[in-house]
Amino acid sequence: MKLSILVPAYNEGKTIERILKKLTEIQLASSVDREIIVVNDCSKDNTESVVTNFIRLNPSVEIQYVAHAVNQGKGAALHTGIQKATGDYLIVQDADLEYDPEEFNILLKPVLDGFADVVYGSRFVGGNAHRILFFWHTIGNKFLTFMSNMFTNLNLTDMETCYKLFRTDIIKGIDLKEKRFGFEPEITAKISRIPGIRIYEVGISYYGRTYEEGKKINWKDGVRAIYCIIRYGLFG
Protein backbone atom coordinates (compact mmCIF):
# COMPACT_ATOMS: atom_id res chain seq x y z
CA MET A 1 0.00 0.00 0.00
CA LYS A 2 1.15 3.52 -0.77
CA LEU A 3 0.30 6.54 1.39
CA SER A 4 0.20 10.05 -0.10
CA ILE A 5 1.02 12.70 2.53
CA LEU A 6 -0.42 16.11 1.61
CA VAL A 7 1.36 19.12 3.13
CA PRO A 8 -0.39 22.46 2.47
CA ALA A 9 1.93 25.33 3.39
CA TYR A 10 1.57 29.08 3.74
CA ASN A 11 4.39 31.03 5.41
CA GLU A 12 5.71 27.97 7.26
CA GLY A 13 9.42 28.52 6.60
CA LYS A 14 10.21 28.22 10.32
CA THR A 15 8.74 24.75 10.75
CA ILE A 16 8.38 22.98 7.40
CA GLU A 17 11.91 21.54 7.34
CA ARG A 18 11.30 19.82 10.68
CA ILE A 19 8.00 18.43 9.40
CA LEU A 20 9.57 17.14 6.19
CA LYS A 21 12.38 15.54 8.19
CA LYS A 22 9.82 13.79 10.40
CA LEU A 23 7.81 12.65 7.39
CA THR A 24 10.86 11.06 5.81
CA GLU A 25 12.05 9.39 9.02
CA ILE A 26 8.86 7.95 10.51
CA GLN A 27 8.66 4.17 10.52
CA LEU A 28 5.41 3.29 8.80
CA ALA A 29 3.90 -0.19 8.94
CA SER A 30 6.04 -2.58 6.91
CA SER A 31 3.55 -2.84 4.04
CA VAL A 32 3.22 0.95 3.56
CA ASP A 33 5.27 3.11 1.17
CA ARG A 34 4.99 6.91 1.09
CA GLU A 35 5.02 9.93 -1.16
CA ILE A 36 5.07 13.52 0.12
CA ILE A 37 3.25 16.29 -1.76
CA VAL A 38 4.02 19.85 -0.65
CA VAL A 39 1.70 22.57 -1.96
CA ASN A 40 3.06 26.06 -1.32
CA ASP A 41 0.07 28.43 -1.34
CA CYS A 42 2.06 31.47 -2.51
CA SER A 43 4.01 31.97 0.73
CA LYS A 44 5.64 35.36 1.32
CA ASP A 45 8.46 33.97 3.47
CA ASN A 46 11.23 31.46 2.70
CA THR A 47 8.96 28.39 2.55
CA GLU A 48 9.86 27.69 -1.08
CA SER A 49 13.62 27.87 -0.60
CA VAL A 50 13.46 25.66 2.50
CA VAL A 51 11.42 23.00 0.69
CA THR A 52 13.46 23.01 -2.53
CA ASN A 53 16.68 22.85 -0.54
CA PHE A 54 15.34 19.88 1.45
CA ILE A 55 14.42 18.09 -1.78
CA ARG A 56 17.90 18.78 -3.20
CA LEU A 57 19.56 17.33 -0.11
CA ASN A 58 17.27 14.29 0.03
CA PRO A 59 17.09 12.97 -3.54
CA SER A 60 16.08 9.47 -2.43
CA VAL A 61 12.81 10.71 -0.90
CA GLU A 62 9.70 10.85 -3.12
CA ILE A 63 8.59 14.48 -2.78
CA GLN A 64 6.42 16.42 -5.21
CA TYR A 65 6.54 20.21 -4.89
CA VAL A 66 3.79 22.44 -6.29
CA ALA A 67 3.60 26.25 -5.94
CA HIS A 68 0.44 28.31 -6.37
CA ALA A 69 0.92 31.56 -8.26
CA VAL A 70 -1.55 33.35 -5.95
CA ASN A 71 -2.69 32.64 -2.41
CA GLN A 72 -5.95 30.68 -2.49
CA GLY A 73 -6.34 29.09 0.94
CA LYS A 74 -5.73 25.75 2.65
CA GLY A 75 -8.66 24.07 0.94
CA ALA A 76 -7.36 25.05 -2.49
CA ALA A 77 -3.92 23.69 -1.59
CA LEU A 78 -5.55 20.40 -0.60
CA HIS A 79 -7.48 20.28 -3.89
CA THR A 80 -4.15 20.55 -5.72
CA GLY A 81 -2.55 17.88 -3.54
CA ILE A 82 -5.46 15.50 -4.02
CA GLN A 83 -5.14 15.84 -7.81
CA LYS A 84 -1.42 14.98 -7.59
CA ALA A 85 -1.78 12.03 -5.20
CA THR A 86 -0.89 8.59 -6.56
CA GLY A 87 -1.19 6.59 -3.33
CA ASP A 88 -3.92 4.14 -2.34
CA TYR A 89 -4.68 6.33 0.68
CA LEU A 90 -3.90 9.94 1.49
CA ILE A 91 -3.56 11.91 4.70
CA VAL A 92 -3.33 15.64 5.43
CA GLN A 93 -0.32 16.91 7.39
CA ASP A 94 -0.19 20.61 8.28
CA ALA A 95 3.22 22.22 7.84
CA ASP A 96 3.31 23.48 11.43
CA LEU A 97 4.17 21.34 14.46
CA GLU A 98 0.67 20.86 15.91
CA TYR A 99 0.29 17.22 14.83
CA ASP A 100 2.81 14.39 15.19
CA PRO A 101 3.45 12.22 12.08
CA GLU A 102 4.69 9.47 14.39
CA GLU A 103 0.99 8.76 14.95
CA PHE A 104 0.23 7.91 11.31
CA ASN A 105 0.30 4.23 12.23
CA ILE A 106 -2.53 4.83 14.70
CA LEU A 107 -4.69 6.12 11.86
CA LEU A 108 -3.50 3.42 9.46
CA LYS A 109 -4.37 0.51 11.77
CA PRO A 110 -8.15 0.39 11.03
CA VAL A 111 -7.28 0.53 7.31
CA LEU A 112 -4.62 -2.17 7.41
CA ASP A 113 -6.94 -4.35 9.51
CA GLY A 114 -9.52 -4.08 6.72
CA PHE A 115 -12.16 -2.10 8.61
CA ALA A 116 -11.96 1.51 7.37
CA ASP A 117 -12.16 3.64 4.23
CA VAL A 118 -11.77 6.93 6.14
CA VAL A 119 -10.14 7.58 9.53
CA TYR A 120 -10.33 10.83 11.55
CA GLY A 121 -7.76 11.60 14.23
CA SER A 122 -9.54 13.14 17.22
CA ARG A 123 -7.85 15.60 19.57
CA PHE A 124 -10.63 15.09 22.11
CA VAL A 125 -10.45 11.36 22.84
CA GLY A 126 -7.70 9.06 24.05
CA GLY A 127 -4.89 9.51 26.55
CA ASN A 128 -2.27 11.21 24.35
CA ALA A 129 -0.64 14.59 25.05
CA HIS A 130 -2.68 17.74 24.40
CA ARG A 131 -1.34 21.26 24.80
CA ILE A 132 -3.63 23.43 26.93
CA LEU A 133 -4.53 26.63 25.05
CA PHE A 134 -7.74 28.39 24.07
CA PHE A 135 -11.00 27.68 25.92
CA TRP A 136 -13.21 29.31 23.29
CA HIS A 137 -11.45 27.51 20.44
CA THR A 138 -12.23 24.21 22.14
CA ILE A 139 -15.87 25.19 22.67
CA GLY A 140 -16.04 26.37 19.04
CA ASN A 141 -14.58 23.12 17.71
CA LYS A 142 -16.99 21.02 19.75
CA PHE A 143 -19.94 23.17 18.69
CA LEU A 144 -19.03 22.87 15.00
CA THR A 145 -18.60 19.10 15.37
CA PHE A 146 -21.99 18.88 17.10
CA MET A 147 -23.64 20.89 14.31
CA SER A 148 -21.94 18.79 11.64
CA ASN A 149 -23.07 15.57 13.32
CA MET A 150 -26.66 16.82 13.36
CA PHE A 151 -26.64 17.13 9.57
CA THR A 152 -24.50 14.06 8.75
CA ASN A 153 -25.84 11.66 11.41
CA LEU A 154 -22.25 10.79 12.32
CA ASN A 155 -20.93 10.67 15.90
CA LEU A 156 -17.52 12.25 15.39
CA THR A 157 -15.82 14.03 18.29
CA ASP A 158 -13.50 16.22 16.16
CA MET A 159 -14.78 17.16 12.69
CA GLU A 160 -12.25 20.02 12.42
CA THR A 161 -9.16 17.85 12.91
CA CYS A 162 -6.31 18.13 10.41
CA TYR A 163 -5.62 14.39 10.52
CA LYS A 164 -8.04 12.84 8.05
CA LEU A 165 -7.03 9.67 6.22
CA PHE A 166 -8.97 8.85 3.04
CA ARG A 167 -9.03 6.11 0.47
CA THR A 168 -7.70 8.10 -2.47
CA ASP A 169 -10.19 6.93 -5.08
CA ILE A 170 -13.05 8.05 -2.83
CA ILE A 171 -11.79 11.60 -2.26
CA LYS A 172 -10.76 12.01 -5.91
CA GLY A 173 -14.37 11.26 -6.85
CA ILE A 174 -15.77 14.11 -4.72
CA ASP A 175 -16.39 17.54 -6.24
CA LEU A 176 -14.80 19.84 -3.65
CA LYS A 177 -15.59 23.57 -3.61
CA GLU A 178 -14.24 25.16 -0.43
CA LYS A 179 -10.87 26.88 -0.76
CA ARG A 180 -10.20 27.83 2.85
CA PHE A 181 -10.97 26.10 6.15
CA GLY A 182 -14.47 25.21 4.91
CA PHE A 183 -12.81 22.10 3.51
CA GLU A 184 -13.35 20.27 6.82
CA PRO A 185 -17.17 20.50 7.09
CA GLU A 186 -17.57 20.14 3.33
CA ILE A 187 -15.61 16.89 3.03
CA THR A 188 -17.28 15.51 6.16
CA ALA A 189 -20.76 16.21 4.79
CA LYS A 190 -19.94 14.74 1.40
CA ILE A 191 -18.31 11.52 2.59
CA SER A 192 -21.20 10.93 4.98
CA ARG A 193 -23.50 10.56 1.97
CA ILE A 194 -21.45 7.83 0.26
CA PRO A 195 -23.34 4.51 0.53
CA GLY A 196 -21.50 1.86 2.52
CA ILE A 197 -18.52 4.06 3.45
CA ARG A 198 -16.72 2.95 6.63
CA ILE A 199 -15.62 5.91 8.80
CA TYR A 200 -13.51 5.39 11.93
CA GLU A 201 -12.04 7.74 14.54
CA VAL A 202 -8.91 7.30 16.69
CA GLY A 203 -7.37 9.41 19.45
CA ILE A 204 -4.27 11.50 18.63
CA SER A 205 -1.98 14.02 20.34
CA TYR A 206 -2.25 17.75 19.75
CA TYR A 207 0.62 20.24 20.14
CA GLY A 208 -1.33 23.43 19.41
CA ARG A 209 0.33 26.76 18.79
CA THR A 210 -0.60 30.34 19.63
CA TYR A 211 -1.25 33.15 17.14
CA GLU A 212 2.20 34.51 17.99
CA GLU A 213 3.62 31.13 16.96
CA GLY A 214 1.79 31.23 13.62
CA LYS A 215 -1.78 29.96 14.12
CA LYS A 216 -3.97 31.26 11.27
CA ILE A 217 -7.58 30.19 11.78
CA ASN A 218 -9.89 32.86 13.25
CA TRP A 219 -13.53 33.61 14.08
CA LYS A 220 -14.36 34.40 10.44
CA ASP A 221 -13.38 30.84 9.53
CA GLY A 222 -15.74 29.63 12.25
CA VAL A 223 -18.61 31.59 10.71
CA ARG A 224 -17.77 30.15 7.30
CA ALA A 225 -17.70 26.66 8.82
CA ILE A 226 -21.26 27.12 10.11
CA TYR A 227 -22.36 28.21 6.64
CA CYS A 228 -20.63 25.17 5.09
CA ILE A 229 -22.18 22.76 7.58
CA ILE A 230 -25.67 24.01 6.70
CA ARG A 231 -25.05 24.33 2.95
CA TYR A 232 -23.41 20.95 2.39
CA GLY A 233 -25.46 19.27 5.09
CA LEU A 234 -28.71 20.25 3.39
CA PHE A 235 -27.78 20.32 -0.27
CA GLY A 236 -24.65 18.14 -0.58
Rank of each mutant, 00 (worst) to 15 (best):
T86C: 01
L176Y: 04
V202Q: 15
T47K: 07
D41Y: 08
I63D: 01
G73D: 09
A29C: 05
V51T: 04
R131L: 00
K22T: 04
R209Y: 01
S4P: 04
V38E: 00
C42E: 07
V61L: 02
G140L: 13
T168V: 03
V38P: 05
A85S: 15
G75L: 02
S60I: 11
L234K: 14
R123L: 00
K22V: 03
E212F: 13
T145R: 00
D175I: 08
I82F: 10
A85D: 13
I16H: 07
K74L: 11
N155Y: 08
E102F: 06
L112S: 03
I171Y: 10
S192K: 13
Q83E: 14
R56V: 08
A77C: 08
V125P: 00
L107W: 09
S60W: 06
Q83M: 12
F54K: 08
A77P: 08
F54M: 05
L23R: 12
S122C: 04
I174V: 07
L90P: 10
N153Y: 12
W219F: 15
V125Q: 14
Y200K: 12
D175Y: 10
K44L: 13
L133G: 07
Y207R: 11
G81L: 08
S205T: 06
H137G: 06
I16P: 01
Y163S: 06
F134W: 04
K190V: 00
F135Q: 14
V125H: 07
